[in-house]
Amino acid sequence: MVRHDIGFRLRNDLSELETLRKRLEQFQTEAGIPEKSLFEINLVLDELFTNIVSCGFRDMDLHQVEITITREGKWVTICIRDDGVPFNPTSAASPEKDCTIEERRIGGIGLHLVRRLTDEMTYLRQGACNIITLRKQLP
């Protein structure tokens, strides 16, 4: 089975969403992802990345968020790795950092979108890192 991979890093800055969009367009061309699925994958990654950048870091330092995406047949696997505070998006718990109630509530909508637009989500805390793995079936 033909396998397509892409891997890249984003700085913990929301302006990196533009980099994310460009990388995904590159992956769409290489891996032949349908337009609608690409929109959904972009949204899923955006929501999780925005959560990490907005709520994940207690310091003002530069951090890297690592993203890898693989397509094999009808399945796309997405992996996001960050070294922020422990946050398990598969549980209902709020991020440990002090986000406002409003941010958490809207964060809830973001995670709802993530769950609805993917087929599987697993979370692993490994050392100082959060690792989120998502699987999505293409039409």
Binding site: F39, N42, L43, D46, E47, T50, E102, I106, G107, I109, G110, L113
Partner: peptide, 9 residues
């Protein structure tokens, strides 16, 4: 072309 939960907010 695109909206996320931040836009919905």
């Amino acid at each position: 072309a695109y909206i996320s939960s931040a836009g919905l907010r």
